[in-house]
Design a protein around this nucleic acid. Structure first.
Ligand code: MN
Ligand code: MN
Ligand code: MN
Ligand code: MN
Lengths: 235, 235
DNA sequence: AACAATTTTTAGCCTTACCTAAAAATTGTT
DNA sequence: AACAATTTTTAGGTAAGGCTAAAAATTGTT
């Protein structure tokens, strides 16, 4: 018995199809599939969503009934085409709103994620399209993550972790793996920003820390830093 | 036992204080108080919210416990100072987002309300402030309604219904009472827009329809039109 | 192959925000 | 004042999305 309360989006949009919670699950499954491709586990999902495994199982059954995921008991879950499409749409909105906040409203890159978590659930296809146009179809969000186009296509980037560069190699900072306020503020503090060039001068074998040159200055960064900064290798 | 799920707004904002539903009730009570000042009835609220009186009673108890309203059984409800403040904040956000949609994203005034209904619930004080600044502190939304400032102060306007003008009197269109798509599209179709000057040429006594002059053209409008268009009387 | 550890599911509850039906209070009419 | 009509509240339920604790399935280790 479909509840009415649907004041918006009755017309143009098939949207309001998915609840806020469903959208968050889909998005998280999407992100986890990229890491351990081949079935996302209930526990992994519970960890990422900061909820309990039993709650995840409940939701997976619901998503499965709606044909958004392929789910076999005890065997983990995968997005269906329909689920994939829905997840990408949410990610597209999240990243567009992040660009809006930084480019138009003077937010810094460490302040936008939590607000985008809310804005990504606004239902209006026209809004998303017009926002995209207003922002002049940005290719990447403030953290260097790619923004899928209206058809859901990502342009994938040639990027590696700073940690994976060899001694003597250089790269351009193009993204962050960790978008936490803490990490982003560390980067700000040390004058590391997307677009800047960085060179690995020396790798300390014992702790895998790196001595790097950035902004013509020398900096010593731990593995936990180099492992969260993406660079586009130069040459 | 306060449920955690509060991923956003843990820091700066005391917000996430009110649920989406609570905010909608507060907003609706605010609007109804302006009409029948002196206690909003359960039924009026149920009608406006498209819900049942019993549901309203439930919610009024909750709002009352949270000190957002003054509620005495069978005696209707009034906003407390705290509730008033919360309602105004939601209305401020609603109207700012409407301005954003029209001014920046090429929406027309009949398309923005439903999207603003969603956006008005986004929690971030900084977002509201920056949006206000980005829009250059607009005083009115696309329908002519006043936008409260950050302190919650409305600039009230000198406006009357077109229906209340006498024969021979003129006014400038400054707002609409009915913001429905249908009414706004009627106005568009007949070239009536905010800022335009209108003169009452003749009032038809029988049906209270008006023969008006607008854009140098003659137009005959029914009472249900003249009763939903606000004008600022000239002279 | 057997047992232990871990993961996942089930069963049973809770809260929010709705609902219907019935009871109670208020209001209107004679 | 009495009765009827209307409004409002109460009582009891539902669905979504959480939770805990216990049961079941899978995985790892000997
Ligand atoms: Mn983000
Ligand atoms: Mn989210
Ligand atoms: Mn509106
Ligand atoms: Mn609303």
């Amino acid at each position: 018995m479909m509840n009415k309360k649907c004041s918006f989006d009755t017309r143009k949009n098939i949207a309001f199809m998915f609840s806020l919670s469903e959208e968050n699950y889909l998005k998280t499954i999407f992100h986890l599939e990229k890491i351990n491709s081949g079935g996302v586990s209930t526990n992994a999902l519970a960890g990422e969503m900061e909820t309990k495994a039993s709650s995840v199982t409940d939701m997976l059954k619901k998503l499965s009934e709606k044909k958004l995921v392929k789910y076999r008991k005890y065997q983990g879950v995968q997005l269906s085409d329909k689920g994939h499409k829905a997840a990408v749409e949410v990610i597209r909105k999240h990243r567009l709103w992040e660009v809006f906040l930084v480019e138009k409203l003077n937010f810094s890159w460490d302040e936008v994620h939590d607000i985008a978590e809310q804005l990504e659930h606004i239902k209006s296809e026209k809004l998303t399209q017009e926002l995209d146009k207003f922002l002049e179809f940005p290719k990447r969000d403030p953290h260097g993550d790619p923004i899928p186009d209206a058809e859901g296509n990502f342009r994938i980037a040639n990027k590696v972790l700073l940690a994976d560069l060899e001694e003597g190699e250089s790269g351009i900072c193009v993204g962050v793996k960790d978008s936490s306020t803490e990490f982003l503020q560390y980067l700000d503090k040390n004058n590391i920003a997307l677009g800047k060039s960085v060179t690995v001068v020396h790798r300390e074998a014992y702790d895998e820390s790196l001595f790097i040159k950035i902004n013509d200055e020398d900096l010593h960064v731990s593995k936990s830093i180099s492992n969260n900064l993406f660079v586009k290798p130069v040459e």
